[in-house]
Amino acid sequence: MGLFILRRAGVMLITALCLTFIVFFLANLYPNLEKLAKTQGNFRMSEEEVATWLGNRGYTQPLFVKYGEWLGVVPGAVIEGTDGQIRGRCIRDGMTPQEAPDYCGILQGDWGTSTVFQDNVGGIISTRLGLTGKLMFWVMVLMVPSALLLGVLAGMREGSRTDRTLSTVAITTTATPEYVSGVILIAVFASSAVGLKWFKGTATSAMENATFENFFLPVLTISLYGMGYIARMTRASMAEVMTAQYIRTARLKGVSFPNIVVKHALRNALIAPFTVIMLQFPWLLNGVVIVETLFNYKGFGWTLVAAASNNDIELLLGVSVVSVFVVLVTQLISDIGYVYLNPRISVS
């Protein structure tokens, strides 16, 4: 088992390296850098000015060197600019070049500085992640139990009226992406046009103080889309299990229907959806970005949009490292949980 996790961790590391490199590469393409220079400097810079601006800040170094610096395996460059000022990757404000450390990459725990927020990337990400964590927690609390319940109820008597109704609900929610359901929910429950005004149409205030009123709509919006998907998976798997021979054996043993569902079918039926729930995380990230933008909740997803649209390279990299790790860790958990749920795969 330990070995298995170790190997998975190795694969994870390689994946993360590859992905961050791709992000790094794309973010460092010259047109992107040019845009960066213009937004940071001023918009009327000429070609040459852009080039010197970039050169002074070390953006024109070879790609691999820059990537190595970011990782922290290559010493941070110190450049004497054409304007005579000495700038270096590792030289923070108020530091002299002598005080600055040689290496300052993620290996040293330094995630760099965001050009948009003029702040430490590590700090930004951890606060934002906390906010998104709060959102995700409530999403999970709402989504997983209701999805499983929906799926099990629908799947235990396939083709019945309950099944048809619940399945239609589930299909409808999977067909409703967050930006559609969000718009509809706001329109119905928060707009002055309909006038119900039960909830707030923005969640900005929920960042400090989440209440039912300002937080329910965003949570519901993310949950709905994922819920339908998980519920359908659970239903399919439950329906399949209910036709299995061993369920018939149980029935002909005289086990009552509720007991068949709970004792015999449930564990077998949850194996497949479990993987799905775990693999749902990267998906949820998508939803998070949309919902945070829609409800103006400044969490991780909102940061991603801000970083990407301003080509804030270091922040963007930080964000991608975190999201890639979230994805990979959930995959790992899903594998381990699968083994745990399914006794047919033994761990030696």
Partner: peptide
């Protein structure tokens, strides 16, 4: 239900399929 399993019992062709894999 009270007769099934106690008075009449049944055995099928596929032994693997008639046993609950997770129990």
């Amino acid at each position: 239900r009270s007769i099934r399993g106690s008075e009449i019992a049944m055995i099928y062709q596929e032994p693997m399929a008639s046993l609950n894999p997770a129990m």
